[in-house]
Nucleic acid binder design. Structure first.
Lengths: 205, 205, 205, 205
DNA sequence: TATGAATGAGCCTTCATTCAT
DNA sequence: CATGAATGAAGGCTCATTCAT
């Protein structure tokens, strides 16, 4: 839901949406680098090439950007996750697909993810972030359910399932801190490695 | 190293140090909750019971607090880590001790750690944070060397040792986001679980 | 006097004038409600159904609207007042006619009048409002002259003529703050009551 | 109720209150001249001799000033009015005292009153002005009750009592627009004239 | 005529910090 | 040591206005 009454005519609307996306992407990059509070709107306008007030055609305010970043991060991920678990596959396979998609997404949106990590406390604390919070929770529940089904059918064993889940969350969420685009390991290899650790197997070797 | 000319007489000095510690601890808690930029000095003075300028007897400035928080986090951890690897123990045992101490420290200093996580990008980016950065690197090198020695003597096997290291960092660094003091799992159990995953064993069973 | 080059062909010109009048009327209403400074041009465009720039086909700028509102208020009133005092009638009758026309006008243009009242200080202070100011003064002089003629020919008596004039101005100018269209008293009754108070008579009884 | 935690120690508190009063008085003067919206906080800081942010030791925000101005205007007036009508005097005498006190107050606080007049629409419209609004209403009710008692005991006669009340409000409220300190008429003379008009007598002559 | 993107000055406010007391 | 008044730069945002389409 973009914001200050976007144009209705399709041609203009397309340009508007494109520009808004650019703005959000730029914001994600700057916020990731300097922090949300550490980035001033004037740095952002400069980075987007717009003038002081021009940004406000595309956003309602600074916080709107943070919401947009979280949405771009969580919504497609959640959708993909639902697709994966809706398909009738064995839990182990679902987990591999899930972690694969997740790592790929997080690597592709590493700026979004870095912003999310930095602002996480605020998101958890404040009421107006309820929606974002519940998306995160929904994703984690999906993940947990896959582990639970695997544990139930004996295809996975955990000393403590919850700890394994949390460890997995830690690994993946930390990934953006160190991956470099075109780095030594592909997202697929990273994901496979993570799965192996969580499942207690030797990984892709 | 406290800052604006602390008293020299021992009795006064003790009280001064105690107060400064309180201030830093309060800052860690507030920063963890609301973010470093999101916490105003006046919120901090209010929380400490001091008046507007009173804080500045104990600190040089706001950033000084961030430095103190990072130091309280990293210095004792690094020292403990050095003790552990200096003792002539098998790598696997060193790893267990290391992760045990690390998780315990991170749980105990969860506010510090949350602050560190939030401000990480800034710490990595800016020159004046060189010292903190190199402490983090030193700790990670110690960890990596333990893994390397384990791999070398055959007591550990990794599909990709660097990935295992990064996964471990991810797990532990993420811990403060979910541990609650007096939670179901003790730091020791958490640490054991992490080690098991990284080493591909079944954990503390 | 409309402004940004209105059309010359009569048909177009008529539509143009009609639109401009609508715009000014809408502005009067909004300004009366929210104040001149408190009303943004975008609220005005929204209220008129035009888009951001569309307004500027009909007006030169925001202040132009204030001028137009004052003109619509003062010009016809002044003209009517001149008609009344130009007719050779006894002062008491002139006063009744004058106050009657005045109250009716002020009630009909209550939004204009509320705007005028709110912005009065600015109008009195700033040079560029000279013309509006002198219209107000002209009207008050006409009023005063009627009172003076009445005092001179003995048909009116005042403890202090100037104070009576100012009281009358106060009453009438305050009327828009409380009249409601279709209220209990008609403008004529209100005017009669005011005259009675100023002349020390018992009113329309 | 002053605002950002005024000092508690009596000596400081006194200076604080004095300064705050100065600030409010200065604001009243500027707002009266240029309008509330038309006066920038930086004009106000300049007029008070404080620096940009210094004002905010004494006020919560710009609107706080408007509230303070209205309170300084209405509270003492209302209190005085209550004193007067609580004394067991004939209605005519009460009215004279009431209007006398009222005109004097309004003349003394002419800046406050000019501000109140300009912002009246906003005050009537917006919920957060409820308290101010009800003070105004309380004063008007007191006034009306005096007129009603006078009408009841036959000491006053009105063609339409409500219209007389509204006329009186108009006269007095308009007074600040033209009185000059040390002008030809004293507040007492003005008040006497107003009473005479409302009561249909010849005034102080 | 009309649109809506864009401008840029200016607004109110916050905040880390200083300093006389 | 501690206070709290004061500073002044910077922050996010609004708004009257312009102009290519």
């Amino acid at each position: 839901m973009p914001v200050p009454s976007p144009p209705t005519r399709p041609a203009l609307r397309a340009r508007y949406d494109a520009r808004r996306s650019e703005v959000v992407a730029t914001a994600a990059e700057l916020f990731a680098e300097r922090g949300y509070d550490g980035t001033s709107m004037s740095e952002l306008t400069e980075a987007t090439g717009l003038a002081a007030g021009g940004l406000y055609h595309y956003i309602e305010g600074k916080e709107d950007l943070l919401i947009a970043i979280c949405d771009e991060l969580l919504e497609p991920l959640l959708e993909r996750a639902r697709q994966i678990v809706d398909a009738a596959l064995p839990p182990v396979e679902q987990l591999h697909k899930l972690v694969g998609a997740w790592v790929a997404h997080v690597v592709e949106h590493r700026h979004h993810m870095l912003v999310f990590t930095q602002e996480r406390q605020a998101i958890e604390r404040e009421r107006r972030w309820r929606r974002v919070r519940s998306q995160r929770q929904a994703f984690e529940r999906i993940l947990d359910e896959v582990l639970a089904r695997g544990e139930a059918d004996g295809s996975m064993t955990f000393a403590d399932r919850r700890l394994s889940l949390l460890a997995l969350l830690g690994m993946v969420n930390y990934t953006p801190q160190w991956v470099r685009p075109g780095g030594r390991l592909s997202p697929g290899e990273i994901a496979a490695g993570y799965c192996a650790m969580v499942l207690g197997k030797d990984g892709p070797g």
